[in-house]
Each structure stands twice: as structure tokens, then as C-alpha cells.
Design a protein around this nucleic acid. Structure first.
Length: 503
RNA sequence: GGCGCAUUCGUCUAGCGGCCUAGGACAUCGCCCUCUCAAGGCGAAGAUCGGGGGUUCGAAUCCCCCAUGCGCUACCA
């Protein structure tokens, strides 16, 4: 292993929003850098002009920051090895590619996409493995001049050795050897002057002094080509570590960049979607840490510092891992419960504002936000769930069917009676805190000869409009006596009407 | 088709020759707590370690073959 200082990079292509697979790759690199007091670099591989997406870069950086993955060198922060956009390094790739041609390691290829397509079609028909037939590898100077004269813009291809083997060692996979004869003369420089991934990646990793390459498993098959490139340049390759792919929850294939539909459930795949659904960055961080890596046989919950302290390439798993939304949800709930009530309230603000149609300032100003936060804390798994548990405290009128005011296994009349008694008791209260409210209402259970769940179920509907809510007495205390009385009156009125109709 | 990688409870994993009658977590189920829903506590069930051959006194752990899955096979990354 290299003794050079640790310099790792996350090198996404801005062709879409950051997805969990990319986030995991970034996270592992970040963890490794922090663990070894190394440098974490963000490099943008924007060499595909056809798939470039305008707002992808912004999302990428915003989501990495949201997860707490800060970079030491990169597009916006600069660094000694910039620029960090590959599109701004075109001349570098061109120079190196031409150098390879001069030295006989690469050659110009004038084949048209049509010819290549036809060739592949032929190969398919004959049942041969598809691959470039190296038509241009042996062009004479005269033939080349003719193509040039026709104005054809060539690509540059690597002249892969026809014989022998190429092997490399991946710290996670071990040593892998392939026959050179199975390798294609890959394109290094496209006809538009842009490099392909392979060329740009190898050059930049070398120029930026990258010590370890940690990236997704899908790159493993192209490593031999990269090694050949390093050899052609006379460079020492970095340490390779290919991370297991993340499978979609069905375990049937890798997570695509689009949303997944598994069974009847739709699942998120973009980091942005998780954020908007109310997942905590610290939960995402912890969870992602564990997909493909483990600290030991027991640890699930792990503060960032602990992860940094223990992160190790040795413990990265080989096998692909299915993304478990259930476990993520559980973990998110756990992290929500760890928040201080005030912190939870603050994090809830944007969700409440959006869900209730209020401004964030107003939500923040309303005392209910902070008072209710601890009551929903252990009841939600994602922040967005809090809205429907808390909205009763923000709405003036509750919307619920009068029938729901009828207690479990009770008559409408008995329910109405219960409501009226509750109203009286509440009206007589001086102090209006949860214990006082409970002390006043609880005796009604016996007096009315019902079960606690029956009585409180009725009042719960009256107060919150829902059969499921935060604890009743606490909720009432948050609302305050006046509003509670109004809601009880409203409930009595609705139920009376219902009883009247029936009678 | 070719090349490559992988294969332990439903899922994520621990395991690197004896500590394994395989441990933990999520999910599931049951009980307790209880004003609903949760949270929490306790407990249960769940994997003969993909299959078959070896090696060894002894294998989930080492070797070989097979099967299955996944990835790559673009002027995409």
C-alpha cells in the first residue's frame, strides 16, 4: 500500500441529482480521508455534454453538505490541483492523449459511428463478442492523410497489447487478472475533443495525487484498461478499492437513479427526496455508513466521530447490499428521539410551514410548535409525519365526521352525555396543565361506567379531530382552556345534531 | 455470448479452522406498560452458512466443480 499522504476523491458526473449510491461512495471516501487526516476532493466529471444537467451540480454540492461531507479541494473552494471541473481541463487531456499517440500507445481512429454500429451488428449476428475490430490501428500515413483530407474528426484509441495479461490488486477484491486479448481498444478522446471517463479519470487521479480510488463496483471491469493506461504513461496506479453495489430493496438489481417501485410502495433514491421526506442527515449518514461496511458484530448506532475513528477498508464488504428502507426508518426515528425538544421543533419548522401553508416565521412564533414537538417526538419516524399529528393545534376548525364522536361500543346518547360531563369538568378547571386535566377527567371514567379508552377516545376526537393523536391531556394543555372548551362545545353540537336526526 | 464479481436468518450483517448446538440489528409475532398511536422493557420464531465434491482429527471459514444473481461489454459515467 502506498505510503503517500491520503488523498481521495469523489468524482461525480453532473448528469442527475445525487442518489444514495453516490452518497455512500462519497461518504466512504470522506470517512477514509478524515480517518487518516487526509484530503477529500470533489471533482466534477462533466465530460458528457449530451447528458449534462444544469442543476445537478448545485444539488450535488448541497446534498453533500447536508450530509456533512465537506471537501478540502473542489470546484468552489479551489485547491492546488485545480481546476476541478474536467471540462476546464480539456487541453490537459488532449496533450496527454497526443503524447500517447506519439509514443505509439494510442492511435487515431476515423471510423464513423455508423460503421461501428454495423460492425457490432455483424458481430452480434455471428455470436461473437462485440468489440472494435481495430480497423484504424494499422492505418498507413497515407490512409490517415486521406481521412484527414475528408475532414473527418478522429477519436484517439488506446492500443491495447494484443497478448499477455494485466493484473491489479484491489484491496477489497484481491488480485484480479485478465487476458489483454479480452480488452477493447477503448476510446480515450472523443471526436469533439472531450476525453472519455477512462482518460480523464486516470490523468486527473495522477495529477491530483490521488492515493486511493474508492468507487462503485461497476468500475471493476474497466480497471485493467486503466492500469494499461497508467503503464503507458509510466505512472504508478493508486490503490484500488471497489465498493459493493447497492441493490434496490427487492435485491434484484442495482438502485437506479429513478424512483423505485417495490410491490405497492414507491421508494426514494435521491438524497434530496430523503431530505424532503424528513430524514435527518445524521441518520442518513449513520445508515449509509453501514451499507457495505460494519464496525463490529453489534454496533448499529454510531456517532460520526466513532465512524471516523474506526473506518477501515478491511471491513468493507464484498457482497452487494440491498437498501433497507425499514432499517433506515427505524434509525431515523431513533435519531429523532435523540434530538432535544427544541432542536426537534426547529427542524420541524419547514415541514409544518409547508404542510400547514404558513410561513416559517409564523410557525416558529407559535408556541404550539415547541410545546407539541416533544409530544410527537417518539411517534414519528420521519419529520414530515409530524404535520398531521400537530395540525390540530394550528387549525381553527376541525374536520371530522360527527359519527366518530360516538365512543367505542357506546351509544350516541351516552357519548353525548360523556362529552357534556367532560365539558363541565374542563370548564371548572383552574389550573390547566396536563396533570390537572387528567385528575379532573379521569374520575369521569368511573362515574360514566365506561372504559378509559372509550371516554378519552371521544374527547380525543373532539379536541384533535382524530382517533390517533399525541397524548390527550398534554394536547389539551397545549391548546389551552378556551380552545378546548370551544372544541368540546362544537363536538357537543355536532353530536346533538346527529342524535336529533336519529331520534 | 465474453469477461469479471458475489452467494450466512425475509433484510443488513458478525464470522477470517476448534470460542458456532452460527452472534447482533431491522422487520415479524407474543407479553408487559398504556387515554389512542408510538416509544420502552421482556420474550419467541427465524440461516443445517447456494449445491456437490474434496483437504483436515475438525470447515460457514481452505481448494475444485456446478448453479444462481449482479456488473461490465458505448465517441455514458
Amino acid at each position: 500500500m502506498s505510503s503517500a499522504p491520503v488523498r481521495v476523491r469523489f468524482a461525480p458526473s453532473p448528469t442527475g441529482y445525487l442518489h444514495v449510491g453516490g452518497a455512500r461512495t462519497a461518504l466512504f471516501n470522506w470517512l477514509f480521508a478524515r480517518r487518516h487526516n487526509g484530503v477529500f476532493i470533489l471533482r466534477i466529471e462533466d465530460t458528457d455534454r449530451t447528458r449534462y444537467q444544469e442543476d445537478a451540480l448545485e444539488d450535488l454540492m448541497a446534498m453533500l453538505r447536508w450530509l456533512g461531507l465537506d471537501w478540502d479541494e473542489g470546484p468552489d473552494v479551489g485547491g492546488p490541483y485545480g481546476p476541478y471541473f474536467q471540462s476546464q481541463r480539456l487541453h490537459i487531456y488532449q496533450e496527454y492523449a497526443e503524447k500517447l499517440v506519439r509514443e505509439g500507445h494510442a492511435y487515431y481512429c476515423y471510423c464513423s459511428p455508423e460503421r461501428l454500429e454495423a460492425m457490432r451488428e455483424e458481430q452480434r449476428k455471428r455470436g461473437e463478442p462485440p468489440g472494435y475490430d481495430r480497423h484504424c490501428r494499422y492505418l498507413t500515413a497515407k490512409q490517415r492523410a486521406e481521412y484527414e483530407a475528408q475532414g473527418i474528426k478522429p477519436v484517439i484509441r488506446l492500443a491495447v497489447p494484443l497478448e499477455g495479461q494485466t493484473s491489479f490488486t484491489d484491496v477489497i477484491r484481491g488480485t484480479i487478472t485478465v487476458d489483454n486479448s479480452s480488452l477493447d481498444d477503448l476510446i480515450l478522446l472523443k471526436s469533439d475533443g472531450y476525453p472519455t471517463y477512462h482518460l480523464a479519470n486516470v490523468i486527473d487521479d495522477h495529477l491530483m495525487r490521488i492515493s486511493h480510488i474508492m468507487r462503485a463496483d461497476e468500475w471493476l471491469p474497466s480497471v485493467p484498461k486503466h492500469v494499461l493506461l497508467y503503464q503507458a504513461f509510466g505512472w504508478e496506479p493508486p490503490v484500488f478499492a471497489h465498493l459493493p453495489v447497492i441493490l434496490d430493496p427487492s435485491g434484484q438489481g442495482k438502485m437506479s437513479k429513478r424512483r423505485q417501485r417495490v410491490g405497492d410502495k414507491e421508494h426514494y433514491v435521491l438524497v434530496r427526496e430523503f431530505k424532503e421526506a424528513g430524514y435527518l442527515p445524521e441518520a442518513m449518514f449513520n445508515f449509509l455508513t453501514l451499507v457495505g461496511w460494519s464496525l463490529d458484530d453489534k454496533t448499529q448506532i454510531m456517532p460520526k466521530e466513532v465512524a471516523i475513528q474506526h473506518f477501515d477498508l478491511d471491513r468493507i464488504n464484498k457482497a452487494p447490499a440491498a437498501f433497507s428502507y425499514e432499517k433506515l426508518e427505524w434509525m431515523n426515528g431513533y435519531y429523532i428521539r435523540q434530538l432535544s425538544p427544541d432542536e426537534l421543533a426547529e427542524r420541524l419548522v419547514p415541514f409544518l410551514a409547508k404542510g400547514l401553508g404558513m410561513s416559517e416565521e409564523e410557525v416558529r412564533r407559535r408556541p404550539e410548535t415547541r410545546l407539541l414537538a416533544p409530544l410527537v417526538q417518539e411517534r414519528i419516524k420521519v419529520l414530515s409525519e409530524a404535520v398531521e399529528m400537530m395540525d390540530f393545534a394550528f387549525r381553527e376548525r376541525l374536520d371530522y365526521p360527527a359519527e366518530s364522536l360516538i365512543g367505542e361500543k357506546m351509544s350516541a346518547e351516552a357519548s353525548l352525555e360523556a362529552l357534556k360531563r367532560a365539558r363541565q369538568v374542563v370548564a371548572a378547571l383552574e389550573a390547566f396543565d396536563a396533570p390537572a386535566i387528567e385528575a379532573a377527567l379521569r374520575p369521569l371514567v368511573e362515574e360514566l361506567g365506561v372504559k378509559a379508552r372509550q371516554l378519552f377516545g371521544i374527547i380525543r376526537i373532539a379536541i384533535t379531530g382524530k382517533p390517533v393523536s399525541p397524548p390527550l391531556f398534554e394536547s389539551m394543555a397545549v391548546l389551552g382552556k378556551e380552545r378546548c372548551l370551544r372544541r368540546l362545545d362544537e363536538a357537543i353540537e355536532r353530536l346533538s345534531r346527529l342524535v336529533g336526526q336519529a331520534g
